[in-house]
């Protein structure tokens, strides 16, 4: 392998500053000469290359001093890698769910048109509508993204069960309501076995949910909180800022209503614009002192 290519690949993550170009040239002459010496001592060329490059160690510390890592690389790591989280079987399942869902809608619409009976539509929705929705839910929860870790599949399955029972309950409610002429009391009764427990279970799951944000997201959030804290100086000032803003907006809404009644919408929007300006001024006065 060519030493120039090898060195280029070593530093491909770094911005090509003049200092780095200079260093790469220096390192190349180092490597070339080292390999030449090793070959002279009886090694074959490949062996010499291997040994010499092995002796380099980890050049990233030196490179960090000389140049910066390419910005777009870091950005790409953060935001652009979504595609990597999408495996082939996931893509297939997403598409399958979408197709089944579309099929369900079409069948429901057709059967509604041809029979004139809403229950026919609901029946086909129950099968072809609910199942893909649950599939989407499962895929969405277990999907790793650039910002979130995937949910454990067992927990995701519990969500799916809760949602499934809930959706089933909704459709049963509607069917019961339309089926009998004295529907409503019966329909309400169906809430008890399906919608009520599934809502409770769903609420339990949501309330016990853990933060699945990735480390860099958490760090970013902490930094944001720190920055906003620094901006306001002390908590008391932040509180005052909140109170002032609240008072401003209550006044703005009152003025808006009053102006609408007196002069109509043509002029009353000015109250909102004035409040926006006021909000900016409040922010400016509260953040400038330290």
């Amino acid at each position: 392998m060519d030493t120039r290519k090898y060195i280029d690949s070593l530093f491909s993550d770094y911005e090509e500053t003049s200092a780095l170009i200079d260093f790469k040239e220096e390192l190349r002459s180092f490597l070339d000469e080292r390999i030449k010496a090793l070959v002279k001592s009886g090694m074959d060329e490949n062996e010499a290359f291997k040994k010499a490059t092995n002796e380099l160690g980890d050049m990233s510390a030196v490179a960090d001093e000389i140049s910066r890592k390419k910005k777009q690389e870091i950005l790409a790591e953060m935001y652009m890698k979504t595609r990597n989280y999408m495996s082939t079987w996931r893509i297939a399942l997403y598409i399958l769910c979408g197709t089944v869902f579309g099929f369900g809608i079409i069948v429901a619409a057709l059967s509604g048109f041809f029979t004139g009976d809403i229950n026919a539509s609901l029946g086909s929705l129950l099968v072809f509508g609910v199942i893909p929705v649950l599939g989407f839910l499962f895929l969405w929860l277990t999907q790793e993204t650039a910002t979130h870790e995937p949910m454990d599949w067992k927990r995701a399955l519990m969500y799916v069960i809760a949602a499934g029972v809930f959706l089933f309950g909704v459709i049963v409610f509607i069917i019961t309501y339309f089926e009998d002429s004295a529907g409503l009391p019966y329909a309400i009764a169906t809430l008890i076995p399906f919608i009520l427990p599934s809502s409770a279970f769903g609420a339990f799951l949501i309330l016990t949910e853990k933060d699945r944000s990735k480390p860099w997201v958490k760090k970013q959030r902490e930094e944001y909180i720190k920055r906003s804290r620094e901006r306001f100086g002390d908590p008391a000032q932040e509180e005052r800022f909140g109170l002032f803003s609240g008072a401003l907006w209550i006044a703005a809404i009152a003025a808006f209503i009053l102006l609408t009644m007196l002069f109509g919408l043509k002029f009353s929007w000015l109250a909102i614009a004035a409040a926006l300006i006021g909000q900016m001024l409040i922010l400016a006065t509260f953040t400038k002192t330290k």
Binding site: F23, L27, G57, D58, M59, A61
Partner: peptide
């Protein structure tokens, strides 16, 4: 650079596994 590297290897009788990155740092 390489001269210094070679001298260190010589003087330590090849006992010291000096990595080039240490030297360039």
């Amino acid at each position: 650079g390489l001269e210094i590297y070679n001298r260190i290897l010589e003087r330590t009788g090849g006992q010291y596994e000096l990595k080039v990155d240490t030297l360039y740092s």
